[in-house]
Write a protein that binds this DNA or RNA. Structure first.
Ligand code: ZN
Length: 233
DNA sequence: CGCGTTTGACCGGCGC
DNA sequence: GCGCCGGTCAAACGCG
């Protein structure tokens, strides 16, 4: 047994510079379902809104210049994720297909009664979620702002461990990031606690090609208030 | 100046 | 008690 229980799925993330041999997040839908189902309070921390994409596509491009663009997606690419309905609705609604997205399980009010959202309850109350990501990128954007507060070398490992604290005032969520000593192609991320706020909004634009019926998505961090759901096409 | 990172010091738990 | 080890603090520093 390991000190932490990893989630039963790994996922993958490739940087723009290196050849994305394998699918990126072909199992992300399962990943999301699992999180929503079993770790409702942790989900907001581990569902990356932009760098990894919330769509279980096999070929999302990592963000470049603060923007992500998907390949043409067909329904099957959504892998049964509920995000399909969101995308389809946005594309059909016109207005440039714009919709907003962030990570906020708290706002949706789930059954997180047993979990304190203070993130302070040091004892068994603190929820911990750990998972691995196959990537050569060292820092993964999960949509939250973090401040690094420590770095330690890990015994029997050439790779250091970095300690982060959520930089939002009043939120005490912490996370730990280290490269897997047994398989350096993986990065291990461990979250402790639950955010008491949402992550930054991501503005997405969904369009659907009339002929193929496929969707294309792009997204970027943006100001919700000053970005009107305007535009035509 | 405000905020983030760096990095060695520090601390508490634990095995010997 | 001592040293190791994982985790945290905080002063210095870097960068707009
Ligand atoms: Zn937070």
């Amino acid at each position: 047994m390991m000190a932490d229980d990893f989630l039963p799925f790994d996922h993958e993330y490739s940087s723009p510079s290196s050849p994305p041999s394998a699918p990126y997040f072909d199992i992300l839908s399962d990943y999301m379902i699992l999180l929503d189902d079993q770790y409702p309070s942790a989900a907001p921390a581990v569902l990356p809104p932009i760098s990894t994409g919330f769509i279980p596509s096999s070929s999302w491009q990592p963000p470049q210049a603060g923007r992500v663009v998907s390949p043409p997606l067909q329904v099957a690419d959504f892998g049964g994720s509920t995000s399909y309905s969101t995308v389809a609705a946005a594309a059909a609604a016109g207005g440039g297909g714009q919709f907003h997205m962030n990570c906020s399980q708290l706002a949706s009010g789930s059954s997180s009664s047993r979990i304190s959202n203070s993130g302070e309850a040091g004892e068994g109350g603190l929820i911990r979620v750990a998972f691995r990501t196959k990537t050569e990128v060292d820092v993964l954007d999960d949509g939250f702002k973090w401040r690094k507060y420590g770095k330690k070398s890990v015994k029997n490992s050439p790779n250091p461990r970095n300690y982060y604290r959520c930089s939002t005032e009043g939120c005490s969520v912490k996370k730990r990031v280290e490269r897997d000593r047994d398989d350096p192609s993986y990065v291990i991320t461990t979250y402790d606690g639950v955010h008491n706020h949402t992550s930054a909004d991501v503005v997405y634009y969904a369009t659907q090609d009339a002929a193929s019926g496929k969707f294309v998505l792009s997204g970027h961090y943006g100001d919700t208030t000053t970005t009107p759901p305007n535009s035509s096409t």
